[in-house]
Design a binder for these strands. Structure first.
Length: 488
RNA sequence: GGCGACGUGGCCGAGAGGCGAGGCGCGGGACUGCAAAUCCCUUUUACAGCGGUUCAAAUCCGCUCGUCGCCUCCA
């Protein structure tokens, strides 16, 4: 099944055609591990996690590589502040990152390379660039000469002339052209570094991804992905290096997600307007964040707020209960005249078709969700009407379950929602200790006691039990088929 | 200053020449001991403004206004 994707390089929609189907090689720029990940990183990770799941669902054999930048000035600064070794900082935030990924249910990449484990490849790459006249050594540093690459600017659609006109680039006496970028930076003796033909030093940021892609994925990859803020200079500079060496396109498709903003301004460390992923998943079910991200097309900006989290939470609960809370309906199953005459099987078919069609048009998760919510409305309508008349026919129930399970499976497989096992275990370790631990058995007793009170019209007692349980984070809902409880 | 994107109903958010996606909210109703949840109805001159192309424009073209991003580390 084919699909269309927006390619930043051509600035247009293109039919996706892999180089060696069914193999699809994807590289996405990971994080620099000097602090906890925030919602901005989370969006990118979730978008490409879902995209990767989608490809796998379509039957592609996906090799997904996401790196760690574990040597960088910001890591060194942090290490100096804390009086620690840079590697211990990097390791700490890699551990933090893995916890976040598990909590928000982002699948591990097939390869998660670290820059510090690829020094040989990086040095070889730089040597090659010098050898072919694309880079030059200058006082222990090595720079890429952008004048040597005629296509410089093709991804970000700007010319070196325009960039120079910007004139915000610090002129460096070491560079031939102010736009030249560092492939290798000499380190001071107290700073971390590696021996190289040019100096004791460390790699520049843009070099690592090229070296790791060549090693793990090859000279031309299918998809290179990342946040739109990486287009210039990072991805532009990657293209310059890679294509100077191979003479071949570095990536067939360049995919960039829109940024997360707060009150219209980019969420970033420097502005201090960020919300960490831990802030989110210690307060909300991580599915709420995933749903929030997927409600917006991946290329549009996404303005984050806790108000929006609350709205999304409501939508999520409606969705979840429609596909999961089937027991009360089962309890009232019996023969009779069908209540609504909904053909759940054809509804399932059209919903699935529309869902995949939406994703095939530049990965429109927002539109795909609209179709899901249409089906959710039908499921809930069935519930409401069935409870009203007091029964559901076994045939209708079977149809309901068929549609509900189908939706649930799709949401689980592709959107990574409604997953029971993986994240709950992680969350328990982070949850602040609940004031009271109520066992399911004891809860049943309380519910029975309350129902007894209701039968005796002792509503004060009944409401007291309900209110007290709510304070403990357990919500009771009375249905025709009995009382159900939910953990908030 | 240069380059790029965007401006859709109460709010959020898809769509991209002719059918008012979807989510949240407000109001009314059904159900309920009361809630909650759910459903139904309503919110129907929605597409920044002004021109133009067209039988037909939110969608294409031009100009204007506004917001944001990139040009420096950034998902």
């Amino acid at each position: 099944m084919g699909f269309v994707l927006y390619n930043t390089l051509s600035a247009s929609l293109e039919e996706f055609v892999p180089i060696n189907p069914p193999q699809v090689n994807i590289y996405t720029c990971g994080v620099t591990v000097y602090d906890n990940s925030h919602v901005g990183h989370g969006r990118s990770l979730i978008v490409f996690d879902v995209f990767r799941r989608y490809l796998e669902k379509l039957g592609y054999r996906v090799k997904f590589v996401r790196n760690f930048t574990d040597i960088d000035d910001k890591i060194i600064n942090k290490a100096n502040e804390e009086g620690k070794d840079f590697m211990s900082i990097a390791n700490r935030y890699i551990a933090s990152y893995y916890l976040d990924m598990e909590a928000i249910n982002v699948k591990p990449a097939n390869v998660e390379p670290r820059v510090t484990e690829h020094m040989e490849e990086i040095i070889a790459l730089i040597s090659k660039l010098i050898e072919i006249g694309k880079a030059y050594e200058s006082d222990g540093d090595v720079y890429f000469s952008i004048d040597s690459f005629k296509d410089y600017g093709k991804l970000s659609k700007r010319s070196p002339e325009e960039l120079e006109a910007g004139a915000r680039i610090e002129p460096s006496s070491k560079k031939n052209n102010p736009l030249d970028f560092a492939l290798w930076k000499a380190s001071k003796s107290h700073e971390p570094g590696w021996e190289s033909p040019w100096s004791y030093g460390r790699p520049g940021w843009h070099t690592e991804c090229v070296a790791m892609i060549f090693k793990h994925l090859g000279e031309t990859i299918d998809i290179h992905a990342g946040g739109i803020d990486l287009v210039f200079p990072h991805h532009e500079n990657e293209i310059a290096q890679a294509e100077s060496i191979t003479g071949k396109p570095f990536a067939r498709y360049w995919m960039h997600n829109g940024l997360v903003t707060v009150g219209g301004k980019k969420m970033s460390k420097s502005l201090g307007n960020f919300v960490t992923l831990k802030d989110i998943y210690t307060k909300y079910h991580p599915d709420v964040l995933r749903l929030l991200v997927l409600f917006t097309h991946y290329r549009s900006p996404l303005d984050f707020s806790f108000e929006k989290m609350e709205e999304t939470k409501k939508a999520y609960e409606r969705l979840k209960s429609a596909v999961e809370d089937i027991e009360p309906l089962k309890a009232i199953a019996k023969e009779g005249n069908p209540v609504l005459n909904i053909d759940f099987y054809s509804l399932e078919k059209t919903t699935q078709e529309q869902f995949y069609k939406a994703l095939s048009e530049d990965f429109n998760t927002s539109l795909a969700l609209a179709h899901v919510f249409n089906a959710v409305g039908e499921l809930n309508r069935t519930k409401t009407e069935s409870f009203k008349v007091g029964y559901i026919t076994p045939k209708e129930l079977e149809g309901y379950i068929f549609l509900a399970n189908s939706l649930k499976q799709t949401l689980k497989d592709i959107f990574g929602l409604l997953e029971e096992n993986t994240l709950s275990t992680t969350l328990k370790t982070l949850e602040p200790a609940s004031s009271i631990n109520i066992s399911t058995e004891f809860l049943e007793i309380l519910i029975n006691a309350r129902n007894l009170a209701k039968e005796n019209k002792d509503f004060k007692v009944a409401d007291f039990i309900r209110d007290e349980l709510l304070k403990q984070g357990i919500k009771l809902e009375d249905t025709k088929a009995g009382t159900i409880w939910k953990k908030l």
